[in-house]
Computed example of a mutant assay.
Amino acid sequence: MSSDPGPVPRVSRQEFDALFAEVRTWGRWEPADRGAWNRVTPEHVRRAAALVRDGTAVPLGRPWDTRPGPDNPRPALHHMTDLGDVEPPEPSAHKDFLGADYHGKAVSHLDALSHIAYRGRLYGGRPARGAVGAGGARFGSVAALGPLVTKGVLLDLPAVLGTGWLEPGRAVRAADVLEAERALGTVIDEGCAVLLRTGRFRRRRELGPWDLDAASAGFHVDAVPLLAGRGVALLGADGDGDLRPSPVEGLHSPVHTLAIAAMGVPLLDNLDLEGLSTACAGAGRHTFMLVVAPLDVPGGTGSPVNPVAVL
């Protein structure tokens, strides 16, 4: 595997549509709005729990980011609503407000199946116009997912390459995924969650923020059939998983489109995987129990989250 693999292969819209049809799982599961999460059975959860050996818990969520920047054009909100107001006779109380337009590049969040439509249709072929409206999503809501617990696999590409990070625009291709499995001694299998570390937050700390919509490391679409064939149930990254600039003609977020709209795989975006990288290196393994507890928002297209990896 090279840190500079050369030009990124371009993909035509016709080729992308053929790929969409190849990985599509429409009609496979009920309830359909849980999509690929239906793969995860109680046995998968028990196996994930068996991966816990030393009890190290690593949070993966970013700090609540209220500072504007090139990667945070819509900052999260936090302000105080009560400063020591007395609730007779005691105690005094301090209260605050949180708010976020969380689908973006700053807030760690889970994308539900209602988040992405392709050619006007959500996962399963439902017309998006009838399924998502001003009141929220009537199909594919984050409330349908509930808590997510399964085996997690960290694809730590910078560790494999011996670099601090992948440069923005670096494509993670199918061959890179296979090499990472070999080098890290891990296996992606059915029902697991795959987390891709590109080193985004280490680069950000050392070089400063940048516009991830313009350039970010992420999966090339040619890696998706491999992940689909392994039966992944959840996909996450320290960016949003997509390579930018997009390699697909006329499509900004092709991996989002394939994962959510074709495969029914929820996504975790903007995870801080630096601590997990260190913990996995120290433990000598890159598998763990992953716990994700989204807010129960009826009609929500996703939720801010602070997932926890337990080694």
Score class of each variant (00 low, 15 high):
Leu295Gly: 14
Thr66Asp: 04
His78Pro: 05
Val308Ile: 15
Ile260Met: 13
Gly231Ala: 03
Ala93His: 15
Glu87Arg: 15
Pro247Asp: 10
Leu227Lys: 03
Leu234Arg: 04
Pro91Gly: 13
Tyr123Cys: 08
Gly300Gln: 06
Gly191Trp: 00
Ile260Glu: 09
Val194Gly: 01
Glu249Val: 02
Thr66Gln: 03
Arg203Lys: 10
Thr257His: 03
Cys192Tyr: 08
Leu19Lys: 00
Val172Ser: 04
Glu274Arg: 15
Arg182Phe: 14
Ala159Cys: 08
Val297Thr: 11
Arg205Thr: 15
Val265Lys: 00
Arg173Glu: 06
Thr301Arg: 11
Gly152Met: 01
Asp71Thr: 04
Pro209Tyr: 10
Ala214Tyr: 04
Pro266Arg: 05
Gly236Tyr: 03
Arg200Ser: 06
Trp29Met: 07
Asp211Val: 11
Pro9Asn: 15
Ala106Trp: 05
Glu190Cys: 12
Asp240Phe: 04
Phe288Trp: 07
Arg53Tyr: 11
Ala134Leu: 15
Asn270Arg: 09
Arg24Asp: 12
Ala57Tyr: 12
Leu98Ser: 11
Pro9Ala: 05
Ala237Gly: 14
Arg200Cys: 02
Val255Thr: 07
Ala279Met: 07
Val310Lys: 04
His252Val: 14
Ala309Tyr: 07
Leu60Ala: 06
Leu83Gln: 15
Thr150Lys: 02
Val142His: 04
Asp296Leu: 14
Gly236Glu: 06
Leu157Ile: 09
Leu161Gly: 01
Val142Ile: 15
Tyr118Arg: 07
